[in-house]
């Protein structure tokens, strides 16, 4: 039985657009970004420089005292020595996050380690016959932050812990970026207007796609990110963006599939032609 797509606006506080429901929360977040709280009189307005990040190739890594590094396709695999292992077990999620960051700092160069943020911890289980399952390993994923903002590009760190609770291997894919001072070429009001127009076009495009494929979906939340786009010159650039997060499912199923979309908040930024630091 097909479900009804258009829901009462009241308690749900959402806006329906054919197959896609957009949460009111997203528009509230958009408003907040466009109109940050006014500074108190005692505060001085601080000039904020703008930057974009241009891709400058992939970071290379070398073997170290306790690990071997091998380049595989577009990432590096760090295989950790089994010597001098600590006697410990697989721990709780919070403890694994701490342990993973410690291992990242011990193995990876400081500038890479300082840009890592643990984003997920998964566990590996074993079951024999009718015995209870037991934890035999863990996988930890870290992603990248630049100036404290999550990066949606191709950089990641995937760590595998074995049953001894020690790091077994680590896969690292890490782009090199040049941080480039940039100027907006559009006034803020116009940038905000374009961002909202892009969002409306996105909603329409997703709705059409969902309708064509007999799906239904929702956009539920948004966060600020740095996202890689290819510009008109074929260059890969990280722009300050908003990532919209939602889900979709088929009309006769409750199975939800995540979906994310990215729209720059200021893609009019153009470099001052002076790279100040590589990251």
């Amino acid at each position: 039985m097909k479900k009804i797509y258009f829901l009462a606006l009241g308690a749900l506080l959402s806006i329906s657009h054919a197959q896609l429901i957009v949460s009111e929360k997203i528009y509230q977040q958009m408003d907040a970004r466009e109109k940050p709280r006014a500074l108190m009189k005692s505060q001085n307005a601080i000039s904020q420089d703008s930057y974009i990040y241009t891709v400058a190739g992939s970071r290379d890594f070398k073997s170290g005292k306790n690990f071997q590094v091998k380049k595989i396709d577009n990432f590096h695999r760090f295989t950790v020595s089994k010597k001098n292992r600590k006697n410990r077990s697989i721990a709780s999620e919070d403890e694994m996050r701490v342990r993973a960051m410690d291992d990242i700092k011990a193995v990876l160069p400081k500038d890479v380690a300082d840009s890592c943020a643990i984003t997920s911890v998964g566990y590996e289980y074993e079951q024999r016959d009718s015995n209870k399952p037991r934890v035999v390993g863990s996988m930890v994923m870290a992603h990248r932050k630049l100036d404290g903002i999550p990066v949606r590009g191709s950089s990641y760190v995937l760590m595998s812990y074995d049953s001894t609770g020690n790091l077994s291997y680590m896969d690292v894919q890490w782009d090199k970026y040049n941080k480039v001072p940039a100027n907006s070429t559009m006034e803020k009001t116009k940038r905000n207007k374009i961002h909202r127009e892009e969002f409306s076009e996105l909603v329409e495009s997703i709705s059409q796609h969902l309708k064509k494929n007999e799906l239904r979906g929702s956009l539920d939340n948004s966060i600020q990110t740095l996202v890689s786009f290819e510009n008109e010159n074929g260059e890969i650039v990280l722009y300050p963006s908003v990532t919209f997060i939602g889900q979709y499912s088929s009309n006769d199923s409750d199975e939800s599939i995540p979906m994310t979309f990215d729209i720059p908040t200021d893609a009019s930024l153009t470099p001052n032609n002076r790279a100040i630091v590589s990251k």
């Binding site: 590009g153 191709s154 940038r191 290819e230 008109e232 650039v237 599939i257 979309f261 729209i263 153009t270």
Partner: peptide, 26 residues
């Protein structure tokens, strides 16, 4: 389990005065 690929490709305005178009790279 899932069988999936990026399906909706969007272009956004970018560049000087937003007169050019950029595409998501992944």
């Amino acid at each position: 389990s899932y069988t999936h690929a990026d399906q909706v490709q969007i272009k956004v305005r970018c560049g000087i005065n937003g007169l050019a178009y950029c595409t998501r790279t992944q």
